[in-house]
């Protein structure tokens, strides 16, 4: 019944063997699909969406791990209505706990687990580079069908790196100018972060950063042209990276009919002006009782399964699961 379970997309045998606590596992484990929920602006429902999407997917029989990566202001546990777990990501980052799996606690629905962000350590909000790499590898190795990363607000590069790690980088937007502005800023920042990372491997002296400095407000394609003019090989590399950058967008708090087209409009604009891909995942209707469910510390989807918002979450889950997972080796 569950397409993900029979899914031959990720061939286990092809993956490297994995070491857990210093020992090789007989069968390598790797998370099948990583979803990151970001969006630049705070207070647009990233945590609520992560929690409810996690519940929906777990209900469909997927094993789901929610990661609260809002390291400075983790509160996904509150959205799920559970107590703050004793051990958090900072215990993993600072090596007090050897594996991420040990941090995962049941989150109220069979098949759903939560790994909480840290509330305690000041330094954990911005882990060191090596710590971050280790954390990213560990996320990749989680034993789950779906990992959902609830990202913090803003376009800090640590946030962007986890966004780019995901198979489905979901940008959340609400129908307000500030949110749309931040969403575009977030998308551009993520794109350039990706290009810079690819370029770093390539090793160049004049690349995308220099093009940005020289080009001012030029569009990504114009920047690409100016790089290509100087270095055709790098241009080709960056073009491949641009085409492979394929985020998703989700509109939250839709109140009126005019808002229904916002997601498609953003995709159309992104495509037309930047020549880049963006997939519209769907929208969530504004729910005046969302805050009430939050205050009762009960996730919306558990509390009110008959509400329109439950349909919206289900539609988004359908669409998400239908998207192919593409793994770069």
């Amino acid at each position: 019944m569950n397409p993900e379970n029979q899914d031959p997309k990720v061939v286990d045998a092809a993956l490297p063997r994995r070491r857990v606590d210093g020992r090789f596992e007989a069968r390598p484990v790797r998370v099948r699909r990583i979803v990151a929920v970001g969006g630049g602006k705070g207070g647009i429902g990233k945590s609520l969406i992560s929690a409810n999407l996690g519940i929906e997917l777990a209900r469909r029989g997927h094993s789901v791990v929610l990661l609260d990566l809002d390291l400075g202001g983790a509160n996904l546990h509150t959205c799920l209505g559970i107590d703050h777990p004793k051990e958090t990501l900072s215990d993993f980052v600072e090596r007090r706990v050897p594996s991420l799996e040990r941090l995962a606690v049941p989150a109220g629905v069979p098949g759903l687990r939560l790994i909480s962000g840290s509330l305690d350590s000041l330094g954990a909000a911005n882990p060191l580079y090596q710590q971050k790499l280790r954390l990213m590898r560990a996320v990749n190795d989680l034993d789950a069908d779906v990992a959902i990363l609830d990202l913090g607000a803003g376009s800090h590069f640590n946030v962007l790196d986890f966004f780019l790690l995901a198979d489905d980088g979901v940008v959340t937007v609400v129908p307000e100018p500030t949110s749309v502005e931040n969403a575009y800023r977030f998308l551009k920042a993520a794109l350039f972060r990706r290009l810079k990372a690819a370029q770093a491997v390539h090793g160049v002296s004049w690349g995308i950063e220099e093009a940005i400095k020289a080009g001012g407000t030029a569009s990504p394609m114009q920047l690409l042209e100016s790089v290509r003019a100087r270095d055709a090989e790098l241009g080709a590399l960056l073009e491949r990276e641009m085409r492979a950058f394929h985020p998703r967008i989700l509109v939250n708090s839709v109140r009126e009919a005019a808002d229904l087209n916002l997601g498609e409009g953003i995709c159309a604009a992104w495509r037309r002006f930047f020549g880049l891909e963006l997939t519209y995942l769907g929208y969530l209707r504004h729910d005046p009782d969302a805050w009430r469910a939050g205050r009762a510390r009960r996730p919306l989807l558990l509390e009110r399964q008959d509400q329109p918002i439950a349909e919206d979450v289900a539609a988004i889950a359908d669409k998400l699961l239908a998207l192919p997972v593409r793994r770069e080796s």
Binding site: K9, V10, V11, R243, A244, H246, E264, C267, A268, R271, E277, L278, T279, Y280, L281, L323, P324, V325, R326, R327
Partner: peptide
């Protein structure tokens, strides 16, 4: 209007 990912993943 939404565009899906590239048509198929190799895997």
């Amino acid at each position: 209007a939404a565009t899906a990912g590239s048509p198929s993943s190799g895997a």
